[in-house]
Structures are given as C-alpha cells and as structure tokens.
C-alpha cells in the first residue's frame, strides 16, 4: 500500500508498490512559497486582495477607455482588410482566416472589459467558426462578414452593455445566421 501522507524531509521515498505492468506516478508536494511571500496566515485560511486595490485596478483600466476605442477601430479596420483578402485570395484563405481569428481574439478579450459586451460576444461567436480555418465555405464567409459588420455597428454607435433593442436585434440576427450555417453543415 502506498503512503499518501507527506513524509518528513530527508526521508527517502519508499519504493512504489505495484506489480508487473504498474505505472509509476510521482506526486510532488511543493512548498507554498507564494503564500508565504504574500503574507498568508499560518492556519492556511485563504486571504483576500484588498478591495481598495481592486478598485484602483478598475479605475486604472477605466482611464484607458479612450485608448481602447481607438485600438478597436484599428482592429476592426485590420479585420475588414483580412476578411477582404480571405474573400479574394481563396487559395490562401486559411492563412487569412487565422489572422482574422487572432484580431478577433484581441477584440473579444477587451470588449467586455470596457463595457462593450456585444463586441466580446460577437467576436467570440465568430471565433467558434475559425478554430478550424481549413474548413471554409461561401456560407461561412457570409456569416463572418455579418459578424464583422455587427462589430462595426457596435463601435460606430458606441453600444455598451446588451445594447438595448438594437443590440438584441443584432444578437438575434447573428444567432439565426449561425444556426443556418450549422444546419447546412
């Protein structure tokens, strides 16, 4: 029987039990240096991050909202260009779709961070179809184009949160387009 409890330092590990064909697994107990470094209590109870520091981080991020808007416009321009290339250059479409995936991933990462929930949602939905860029079709390109157009609308109209009626309408129409594409597949 193997011993599950940690042994004292310096004690050589006992020979693992098990017969012929057994596979050996080493379970290594690491000292929790990080916990000691951040001042964790000896009783092992979890601590917290100072709410004032969380507020500070939130404020610092909020200060970058204008930079985010600028960056998103740049990203959308790049996205549109990559999409146009993917439509034209069918031979290298997969390569262009990978680029679209990467740009869209950046948009998705930070949209919600700055209150543009729909940007993150639309980018994320689009990315579901870009995981396998070799598997493309005209119908897929149409759906991608619709998502990119919707992201443009979100930025143009500065739509935050769920976007109200317009946001819900965009969300529904994109969901319908995706459902049709999945049905075709």
């Amino acid at each position: 029987m193997t011993d599950k409890s940690p042994k004292s330092p310096g004690t050589p590990p006992e020979k693992p039990a098990g017969g012929k064909g057994a596979r050996v697994v080493e379970i290594i107990e690491l000292p929790n240096k990080l916990r000691a470094k951040v001042g964790g209590t000896a009783d092992g109870k979890p601590g917290q991050i100072d709410p004032a520091h969380i507020d500070r981080a939130t404020r610092h991020v909020a200060r970058m909202a204008e930079a985010h808007r600028g960056q998103t416009r740049i990203d959308l321009t790049s996205l549109q260009a990559a999409f146009a290339q993917a439509q034209r250059d069918t031979e290298n479409r997969a390569q262009h779709l990978r680029k679209i995936y990467k740009i869209s991933d950046g948009i998705m990462t930070l949209g919600r961070t700055f209150g543009y929930n729909l940007l993150s949602d639309f980018a994320n939905s689009m990315n579901q179809f870009l995981v396998d860029p070799e598997n493309t079709s005209d119908a897929l390109m149409t759906v991608l184009g619709l998502h990119i157009d919707a992201m443009h609308v979100v930025v143009r109209d500065d739509i935050k949160g769920d976007g109200g009626e317009l946001g819900q309408a965009l969300t529904k129409s994109l969901a319908l387009a995706r459902a049709k594409l999945i049905h075709r597949r």
Binding site: T2, S5, P6, K7, P9, P16, R23, V25, P31
Partner: peptide, 18 residues
Amino acid sequence: RVITGHRVLLEEASAEAL
C-alpha cells in the same frame, strides 16, 4: 486506474524515477 503513486516532498523528487 492502474497506476501506482508515491508522495514525496520536492527535495525528495527524483529526476531518475521516471
């Protein structure tokens, strides 16, 4: 699972064990 484990502290972990 058909594996055998033994639990060691970091300083006891053997690079040659596996």
